[in-house]
Design a protein around this nucleic acid. Structure first.
Length: 811
DNA sequence: ATTAGGG
DNA sequence: CCCTAAT
């Protein structure tokens, strides 16, 4: 019909609509079977269908013919450049002024109807305005005018044709006659919408339906501000042949619909769907008002936004062809995997699994106007329905569908589809009705084609089924997780899962990853800010120690460990070059440990080695975490370490011992603790030399003090520690054993523990040296924190200035 | 299928 | 916990 120019030439992408896109809309009645359970798409489709119907009508060609035409066009592949223009609104035939009422009453939705009516009335008014124009365009009357003018939208790219009134404005190029003509018509149209709708669209059916059932089905398309730009067009273009319309930017146009209460509308939609073959969704009710009784929410969608369409078409093209193009474009859009987007209070709701209630859509407090439906480009096809193919709840559906009301159905569809009150237009589109028009069965609509599905219902189901329940991690789980991460590092969640949570089906590796993420966060914040079951600080510190650890790191550690271990065994190997760590920051150090320590350190700024010591429960771990945050907050490279480091080979032995899985002689375990520090020595030196400050939770002093308290000779205990890096500062958190015991954690052997701790405290005293700073740990946590910060900041500055590293007890 | 991030 | 992009 219309010659099409290639859009491509223009530089746009031309899309051909799939021939199948439009199916003949022969079927008028909506058979349940036909209806496919679909989601949003369906709704949209329905709307489109309606629109299409109108268009075809206007063109005067029979539907079939239209279809044919479309095909032809498609095949020709024509690429025409058109700007699209408008879009038809679908006038929905309304009988009388209050079609709704008429229709409703039969259905029993009178109340609803009423509400709607008003709304619609509003809508009408709109239509009367500029918006109306578009509508008018559809009418045959208008055609002539349009044709004459030749709607040429223009070749320029990005011309947007808006269906709505606004569109006109936007389309400057045309602006002329055509537009004007259109407008005038529009007004007319709006009036006649109902009649036109019924008549035109469904000529056959129309007759009866009109009379008998007043439906409402008008829709207007308005242009809404385009808030979204998709690229969908291009995307689609690549993969699918489309019509010649551009979807560059799409804007959404809200289409207003009226409810169709009569069959006709439904049938139409159904037919359309069939035609288009799009089906996936079941139908949805049409604009609906919602009311909800029970826990059902009823929605009425008056309009929804569709993406913006760009069309290029030669001036010589006929209006009819233009309309067809638009129609096809719309159909294609709908069929091409677009889905309905939902916005609640301006916030986009992406989680299809959420329940309406969770989303804030509830019968009582929902302001329907706060809901916006829109068509969105979706890479994926409709995904929804598929999940629950089998609809269970047929019961409700059937009744609804059948009895009912197409209207209801339609409305539902609309909802799903997208209604959307554009901001400009649309807020009020959705209104609440006092009554529930459609009882939506939660059940699905699914498999069958229940006439309509409510998205909501679907969502609810899905949601219920999919949203997993929250299962807070227990301390034991956290420990297992921490242990696994210490072993495997981060970045291997699959392995972590297999390693520590193989039996916990409800913990996916993603969950573990997420938990780790939250643990790291938790460890960084102050205990006061934490919620939920408190996780032992000890574990959190281990989290901090291991955060960001990856396989590479662990590997390095192992290597370093081996090296240092060898070094320990035979001093000869001390000059073993430090292998470059995986990290680029680490440079190869050719110097051997000892020389490096003594001489090279002064050359460049280095990190400080800060050690926190103290009795159990003195607050070391907590303060370590705070100090870490503090230094990191200053932008100072800092890491938190702790001994024993259970990650190493020796560390595992220590772990086994500590967990009573192995019995070791006190001397043996002491040496293991010492070896554990030695295996980390080289890495420690690397870190310090490369500017990283290390905060170490327990160090040689603890080892010596505890072992000595057990009865070992203190000098013997110190021997293996000789040669380790000496801390730049030792912060001793001083607290009396009794006081520490009051903090809990000593369990039943309180007395024993206290006595032992006293011994430990005594040995600590003998180990004091100039690097020590005694901090009164009995003070408020904040005070302690503050004092520590002062001391550490000082030390860090000294080290930055080149304070040389020294060795422990070497001289 | 996993991972890494953002929500 | 979910969702998604990237791998």
């Amino acid at each position: 019909m219309v010659s099409h120019t290639c859009v491509e030439e223009v530089g746009y992408k031309s899309y051909l609509l799939p021939a199948n896109a439009r199916a003949p809309r022969s079927a008028r009645r909506r058979s349940i079977e036909k209806t496919i359970s679909e989601d949003d798409n369906m709704c949209a489709i329905d709307l489109l269908a309606t629109v299409a119907g109108h268009l075809s009508f206007e063109s005067g060609s029979s539907i079939d013919k239209l279809i044919e035409d479309h095909r032809v066009v498609t095949q020709k592949s024509v690429k025409e450049e058109f700007l699209e223009e408008e879009k038809p609104l679908m006038p929905v035939a309304l009988s009388g002024e209050d079609p709704y009422q008429g229709s409703l009453s039969p259905c029993g939705f009178s109340s609803v109807i009423t509400g709607k009516v008003e709304n619609e009335a509003d809508g009408f008014s709109y239509s009367g305005g500029s918006d109306a124009c578009q509508v008018g365009s559809f009418s045959e009357d208008i055609k002539p005018d349009i044709d004459g003018d030749a709607v040429v939208l223009d070749a320029r790219p990005n011309v947007v044709v808006s269906l709505g009134s606004s569109s006109r404005t936007e389309v400057p190029s045309n602006g002329n006659c055509a537009s004007h003509g259109v407008r005038d018509d529009v007004n007319l149209f709006s009036r006649d919408d109902d009649e036109n709708f019924s008549g035109y669209i469904h000529p056959r059916v129309t007759k009866n339906s009109l009379r008998t059932v007043p439906r409402i089905g008008d829709r207007r398309i308005r242009k809404i501000l385009a808030s979204r730009h998709w690229k969908g067009g291009s995307r689609h273009a690549d993969t699918k042949p489309w019509r010649n319309y551009y979807l560059h930017h799409q804007r959404s146009y809200p289409i207003k619909k009226r409810k169709n209460f009569d069959h006709i509308s439904d049938s139409i939609t159904d037919d359309y769907r069939l035609r288009t073959k799009m089906h996936r969704g079941s139908r949805k009710g049409q604009g609906a008002s919602f009311v909800a009784s029970n826990s059902h929410v009823k929605l009425r969608i008056k309009s929804f936004r569709v993406p913006e369409l760009f069309i290029e078409i030669p001036e010589t093209a006929t209006v009819g062809s233009l309309k067809r193009m638009v129609m096809e474009a719309v159909s294609t859009l709908l069929s091409d995997g677009h889905r309905v987007g939902l916005m609640v209070h301006g916030k986009k709701v992406r989680d299809d699994n959420k329940t309406l209630h969770q989303t804030g859509i509830s019968q009582d407090n929902t302001h329907l106007d706060s809901l916006d439906f829109s068509l969105e480009p979706s890479s994926e096809l409709p995904q929804l329905l598929t999940s629950h193919p089998s609809g269970h709840a047929s019961g409700e559906l059937l009744p609804v569908c059948q009895a009912a009301n197409m209207d209801n159905v339609l409305e539902s569809d609309h909802h799903d589809s997208a209604l959307f009150p554009s901001d400009s237009l649309g807020k009020n589109k959705v209104t609440e009705d006092s009554k529930a028009v459609i009882p939506v069965a939660l059940t699905e609509l699914a498999s069958r084609p229940p006439c309509r599905k409510l998205k909501r219902s679907e969502q609810q189901q899905q949601q219920a089924a999919q949203r997993r329940i929250r299962r807070p991690f227990s301390v034991a789980e956290v420990e297992a997780l921490v242990q696994a991460v210490e072993k495997l590092g981060t970045g291997r969640w699959r392995d972590v899962k297999l390693c520590a949570f193989e039996d916990a089906d409800h913990r996916t590796y993603v969950d573990l990853k997420d938990k780790w993420k939250t643990l790291v966060h938790t460890a960084k914040i102050s205990p006061q800010q934490r919620r939920g079951e408190p996780v032992p600080q000890e574990l959190l510190n281990r989290v901090l120690v291991n955060k960001g650890m990856n396989q590479i790191c662990s590997f390095s550690s192992v290597q370093l460990f081996s090296r240092s271990f060898r070094a320990l065994a035979s001093p000869r190997s001390l000059n073993y070059p430090v292998q470059s760590l995986n990290r680029s920051s680490v440079r190869m150090e050719s110097s051997n440990f000892s020389s490096g320590v003594r001489t090279e350190s002064s050359v460049k700024p280095r990190g400080a080695l800060i050690v926190l010591e103290g009795l159990d429960r003195s607050g070391k771990s907590t303060q370590c975490a705070k100090l870490l945050s503090f230094l990191e907050g200053l932008g100072h490279p800092t890491e938190l370490w702790r001994f024993p480091d259970r990650e190493t080979s020796v560390g595992k032995m220590i772990s086994a011992y500590l967990s009573n899985k192995s019995q070791l002689d006190d001397h043996t375990i002491h040496l293991l603790f010492s070896a554990n520090r030695w295996e980390k020595r080289s890495l420690m030196e690397e870190k310090l030399k490369t500017g990283t400050t290390l905060i170490v939770d327990r160090y040689s002093y603890s080892g010596v003090a505890f072992s000595s308290a057990k009865g070992l000779d203190i000098d013997w205990c110190k021997a293996p520690e000789i040669g380790l890096l000496a801390p730049d500062s030792v912060l001793y958190l001083d607290i009396s054993p009794e006081r520490a015991a009051e903090r809990g954690g000593y369990g039943d052997e309180r007395y024993e523990r206290v006595e032992f701790q006293k011994k430990v405290a005594d040995f600590y005293q003998t180990l004091r040296d100039s690097s020590w700073k005694i901090i009164n740990a009995g003070e408020a946590m904040e005070e302690v924190e503050k004092k520590i910060q002062e001391v550490v900041l000082d030390k860090v500055k000294e080290c930055t200035k080149g304070k040389p590293l020294s060795l422990l007890w070497s001289s």
